[in-house]
Design a binder for these strands. Sequence first.
RNA 1: GGCCCCAUCGUCUAGUGGCCUAGGACACUACCCUCUCACGGUAGGGACAGGGGUUCGACUCCCCUUGGGGCUACCA
Length: 436
Amino acid sequence: MAAPVKVRFAPSPTGFLHIGSARTALFNWLFARHEGGTFCLRIEDTDKERSKQEFLEEILSSLKWLGLDWDGELVFQSKRTEKYRAVADGLIAKGLAYPEDQAIRFRVPKTGKVGFDDLLHGRIEFDLEQHVSLAEDLVIFKSDGSPTYNFAVVCDDAEMGITHVIRGDDHINNTPKQIPLYAALGLTPPVFCHIPLILGEDRSRMSKRHGATSIREYLEAGFLPEALVNYLSLLGWSPGNNEEILPLEEIVRRFDLKRVLKTGAVFGRDKLEWVNGQYVRKLPVPELTGRLLPFLEKRGYAEASKDREWLERVVKLFQERIFMLSQFPDLAQFFFDEKIGYNQEALEEFRKDPRLKGAFTAYAAALEALEAFDVKTVEEKSRAFMKEQGMTGKEFIHPCRVALTGRTISPGFFDVVSLLGKKRAAERLRSAASQI
RNA sequence: GGCCCCAUCGUCUAGUGGCCUAGGACACUACCCUCUCACGGUAGGGACAGGGGUUCGACUCCCCUUGGGGCUACCA
């Protein structure tokens, strides 16, 4: 029996949760859940200047939003200074480290090779005589009394019993600094697995200039967390059978660290949007409606949720027309707002047909005469009305669509009429008639 | 500059020596469906960076070149 897996995600609370970090967290989480192991969080807040409480809260809420739950208590490096100090003192006592200008330096080996077996890359070796950054003794305690990253990481990973260190491959060059530390401490290093970074369109590490990088921005843009997680899991990994839209449980079940690619993947917004659209379409309407509520509120359409049944019918009309939640208030605006702003070009076009003005008015009356106002009835009566008027569907429906919605595009016309209701539909038709 | 990593369609990827005249998805184009839009459906263009080996046989293994990226802090 192999030892139970224990991994960690170790963010620094110096900024929002970056999409790249989130992917690293996700792969750690997927690996832990797949193996039935433990996924913990360690807050690397040794940089007192840049670490902020608000960033910590932001990171935690982003992880929760993504559904990446962690095990056990948070470990704060800032609260463990004593421990690091004790370890450093031990090193000094053994002559393996020494104070210098208030700082403590660890004597690193200057000749030979340092290497490790990476789970993904296989053997990676460094020739100490050529690796300039390894030539100087490693500072493990700064002169301000706080431990350095490479030192704290080793102490913590060892003490927490981390079995697999899964991190971005930008850390490959840190590994040869950490290995000698494990040796000096008499510890066996964990298994290292360096996964590729997420890239921007120009193939350089994804950063703000490539667009949205914080998880919060994706939440606000109207992405579904399960869609973002699905998409992220496909960056550098695939189940191997051409399947792409997979429920989280299935991703967990099939996730295999060894199948992760070594190549950096470009973050493609287009495909993310497509994946999100797939999830939007799969959501039961009541559920989708609930998720749209915050976006409606933000636009001042909170009133709309009072008639939940009606709102759900509206949502259903747009379920296949949006791929991001944030699109809904815009596309369905004419359902929530009486000010509909006519598409002027279209209006101009309709003025060329002398029949329209009268048809709008007559249609308004025809609708008002209806007893039932369900979609089926509306469609039947409307088609009969068109026939009476001697107008084709195209001649009549397009102008009416603009009269009712202000726009040239909308969900099915009869659905719109029915959901707008008798009163509002008639009002808008008359209003339009007066304007052409 | 030095060190390290990487290399299949524009992008995400399948592929682990013959199943590949390289499969899927996004995007793009055309057509179908149709009251517009979207969804859906069908079709199409589009890749193994280059050069050497190894082998009966290389997208798959090795080497070189080229290209890209990362790291080079008393930041994490």
